[in-house]
């Protein structure tokens, strides 16, 4: 069943249009990866979905029309975004960052505390630094914090914008394993933007190829890597 469906999604910055009417779909339980070069419009796609920039076209999430919904309301519908560059609250402690992630929840302090415990177990390095300011964490730790914070809202769909950016390969691998495990064990749907095709293709249920604001190819990871032209032109292996 389709969880997120965008049709003719167009967005940009001021007079500049970056996305030219793309169609996009994420089904429940899928990890969908958007690949593309610098400037292809990957981050813009994420922002258009999460509502942080003006956009036009139809966006539907879980049966709700969210094409005119404000970003904070979209979060309350169950979409959590890990923005590019992590976007943690640098002056707040690690624990407060996570609590802020759960701020939209209405299921009581007990459930939130339980989730807090759970993510501290999942990411032991965050647990060690729970009262430290988020700004003092390393890049990898901040990325984990950003993901954990997004998960604190118990989202149905997780948007991840280039989580590997600026991270050591080992840490990136660890991060992707966590995402994959969440997907496998919890059925979390994920929409992931990546430049690192090689890495992301492994866990993708489906892949979109984005070029200058248009989707030029889509399909399962296997289909796309089987196509020689696409593989050479876009995937680089």
């Amino acid at each position: 069943m389709s969880l997120l469906r965008a049709h003719g999604l167009t967005a940009g910055y001021g007079p500049v249009t970056v996305l030219n009417g793309i169609d996009l779909e994420v089904n429940e339980g899928e990890i969908v990866v958007i690949l593309g070069a610098n400037g292809a419009g990957k981050t813009t796609t994420m922002r258009a979905v999460s509502g942080t920039i003006p956009r036009s076209g139809a966006v539907e999430f879980d049966g709700h029309d969210i094409s005119r919904t404000s970003p904070d309301a979209i979060v309350r519908h169950g979409v959590a975004q890990v923005p590019q560059g992590r976007g943690t609250f640098p002056e707040l402690s690690v624990e407060d960052n996570l609590r802020a992630g759960a701020i939209t929840r209405r299921d009581g302090a007990g459930a939130v505390a339980a989730d807090l415990q759970r993510w501290f177990e999942q990411f032991p390095r965050l647990a060690e630094r729970r009262s430290q300011r988020a700004g003092s964490l390393s890049g990898g730790e901040q990325q984990m914090l950003a993901i954990a914070r997004a998960l604190m809202s118990r989202p149905k769909l997780l948007l991840c914008d280039e989580p590997s950016l600026g991270l050591a390969p080992l840490i990136t691998k660890e991060l992707f394993e966590v995402i994959e495990r969440l997907n496998r064990e919890e059925g979390l749907s994920v929409l992931l933007v990546e430049q690192n095709a090689n890495l992301a293709m492994h866990m993708a249920s489906r892949v979109y190829l984005l070029e200058t604001g248009r989707i030029v190819a889509s399909g399962s990871a296997a289909e796309l890597s089987a196509d020689d032209t696409i593989r050479k032109a876009y995937l680089g292996f």
Binding site: F89, A100, A150
Partner: peptide
């Protein structure tokens, strides 16, 4: 929660929206 939301907005208003805070 209100205080947490205020602190979050003070720290990073963009991200505050992304965790669902009505800034």
């Amino acid at each position: 929660k209100l205080g947490l939301a205020m602190n979050a907005v003070a720290s990073n208003a963009e991200s505050a929206k992304l965790v669902g805070i009505r800034t």
